[in-house]
């Protein structure tokens, strides 16, 4: 499983892309694993306005994850 962090989440973690093997089976399991390794990042993933995308589609709430999934955590967006 490939996990991507964008914006301030990548700066906070010190990484922007990481492989997780074995892959957690759900979004909540992935977040729990990340929080166990880095409590500040774990809290930030549940922070205001942070969305998750699985295989490039926004998901809301609990989601099952395939072993080969690409999971991205997206803080509030700002273009233009």
């Amino acid at each position: 499983m490939r996990v991507l962090l964008f914006g301030r989440l990548g700066d906070l973690a010190g990484w922007r892309e990481r492989a997780f093997e074995p892959a957690p089976a759900s979004l909540s399991a992935l977040k729990a694993l990340i929080a166990a390794q880095d409590a500040a990042l774990g809290a930030a993933l549940d922070g205001p306005g942070v969305q998750a995308a699985v295989d490039r589609a926004i998901v809301r709430g609990e989601t099952a994850l395939a072993a080969g999934a690409e999971v991205a955590f997206l803080p509030p967006m700002s273009g233009g």
Partner: peptide
């Protein structure tokens, strides 16, 4: 839409250091 909902993350650099911009 682009200012607040398009998937971009904007960082400003200046004398006060870098800053992530949010809507």
């Amino acid at each position: 839409y682009l200012k607040s909902r398009a998937p971009f993350w904007k960082k400003e650099y200046g004398p006060a250091g870098p800053r992530w911009v949010e809507p």
